[in-house]
Write a protein that binds this DNA or RNA. Structure first.
Lengths: 207, 207
DNA sequence: ATATTATTTAATAGACTTATTAATTGAATG
DNA sequence: CATTCAATTAATAAGTCTATTAAATAATAT
C-alpha cells in the first residue's frame, strides 16, 4: 500500500479550472488558459472533459454541494442553547465565506445563467436543510413562547445572517477599491464585521 | 421652437446598449446584439462610440453617478427626526433598487474588472456623501448621548441598510429559482422584506 | 443642381474560442 | 520485442467578436 505521489493531469486540469472559474467566471476563462495553468495542451482539456460546459458543471456542482452541506450542517449545534446555535451558524457561515470568498459571486453569476441545470442543484439541495430547519423551528417556537425571542421565523433570521455575511464578500471589495483602503484596513474591517454582523442578529432577536 | 420627435440613432444605440449591458453584463453583450436591438448596422455602433469599452464606460459612469446621487441624496431628509431619516433612507434605497434591480449585479461584476477606470468613479463619488454624512453623524451623536440609540457609527448603520436591501436583489432571484417560487410568491416576499429589513435596522438602533 | 458633409451599410481583416481529428509519444502486457 | 491502449500534442475547422475601410445613401449648404 503506497501513496500515489504522481498527480494525474486530469486532476491538475480540474484544479486549474476550479481556480480560474472561481477567479474570473465561466465566460472569461478559456480552455486555453485552463490548459496553460494546468501545464498541458489545450486539446487535453477536451479529451478528459469533452466540453467546457461539462467541466464547469462538474466543478460547480461539487462546489455547490460542499458549500451548502457546510452551511446547513447541524452536527455541531445539538448541545448548544438556541442563541448559541444562532451565534454558531453566523460565525461558521462567515468563516466558510472567508475560505471561499469567490463563491457568492460565482453563485450570483452562474446560477442565473444556467437555469437548464438548476434541477440537478435543486435535487441536491432538497434534503440538506430539512434537519436543521426542523430543529431550529421547534426550538424557536419555545423561545418565542417563553418571550426570550421576538416572534420571527427561522427563515427571517437566516435571511439576515446570510445577507449580512454575503454582502461583505460581494460588496466590500468594491467599496474598499473605491475608497482606496489599504490591505491592513480591509482585514481590520472584515474582522470587525464578523462580530458586528452578529450584533445585528442578536439585536434582531431581542423581544 | 419645436420639439424634436426624431429620435437619433445615436441615442437608440445608447438605450439598446444600456438595456443589454444591464441585463447581461459587458462580456455577454456584443456590439452586433446592440446594433440589432437598436435597429441599425453593427458598424454604426463603432462609428458613434469607436469602441465597445468606450460605449460601456459612458453608460456605466452615468448610471453610477445617477444611482449614487440618489442613494446619498439628503434633500428630503432635513425636516425628519433621526429615526425617520433612517426609515426614509432604507425605504428609498429599497425603492431605488426596485427601479434598478440589475444595478447591484452590474456593480459587483464590472467595478471589479475595470480597476483602471476606478479613479474617475472615485472622483465622481468624492463629494456626494459628504453632506449626508455630516448631518447624520452629528444627529447620531446627539441621539447616542440622549441614550435613544445604541452607540454606533453611521457607517455601521448604512452597511446594514445596504447589505439587507442589496442582498435581496442579488440573492433572492437565485433562491427563488432554486426553490421554485411563483411570480406571486416572489412579489409577496419582496414586499415583506422591505418592512422586515427596516425592522432589522430599527432593532439594531435600540440601545 | 452641385458640392460638401454626415449617416449608414457591406465587406472583411485579424484575433480568439471551442471542439475535433489524426498523428505522436509513452507505458503496460503478452 | 511487438502489440495494444492510454495520454498527449499539433493542426485545423468553424464560429464569434471587435474594429476598420471603403462604398452607398441621405442631408445640408452654396
Amino acid at each position: 500500500m503506497s501513496i500515489n505521489l504522481e498527480v494525474s493531469m486530469e486532476k491538475l486540469i480540474l484544479e486549474a479550472a476550479e481556480k480560474l472559474f472561481l477567479e474570473k467566471g465561466f465566460d472569461l476563462t478559456s480552455t486555453t488558459q485552463i490548459a496553460k495553468e494546468a501545464g498541458c495542451n489545450q486539446a487535453l482539456v477536451h479529451y478528459y472533459f469533452r466540453t467546457k460546459d461539462n467541466l464547469f458543471n462538474m466543478i460547480f456542482e461539487s462546489k455547490f454541494n460542499a458549500f451548502f452541506q457546510q452551511v446547513f450542517d447541524s452536527t455541531h449545534l445539538t448541545s448548544l442553547s438556541f442563541i448559541d446555535k444562532i451565534k454558531y451558524i453566523s460565525n461558521s457561515h462567515f468563516d466558510l465565506l472567508l475560505e471561499n470568498p469567490n463563491m457568492p459571486k460565482l453563485l450570483v453569476n452562474e446560477l442565473s445563467r444556467r437555469k437548464e441545470n438548476i434541477g440537478i442543484l435543486r435535487e441536491k439541495l432538497k434534503d440538506i436543510p430539512e434537519k436543521l430547519f426542523a430543529m431550529m423551528n421547534t426550538e424557536l417556537q419555545e423561545e418565542i413562547k417563553a418571550k426570550r425571542i421576538k416572534d420571527l421565523t427561522f427563515i427571517d433570521i437566516l435571511f439576515v445572517v446570510i445577507s449580512l455575511n454575503v454582502s461583505l464578500f460581494l460588496m466590500f471589495p468594491l467599496a474598499a477599491d473605491l475608497l482606496n483602503f489599504s490591505e491592513r484596513q480591509r482585514k481590520l474591517i472584515v474582522n470587525q464585521r464578523k462580530t458586528e454582523n452578529l450584533n445585528v442578529i442578536l439585536s434582531y432577536l431581542r423581544p
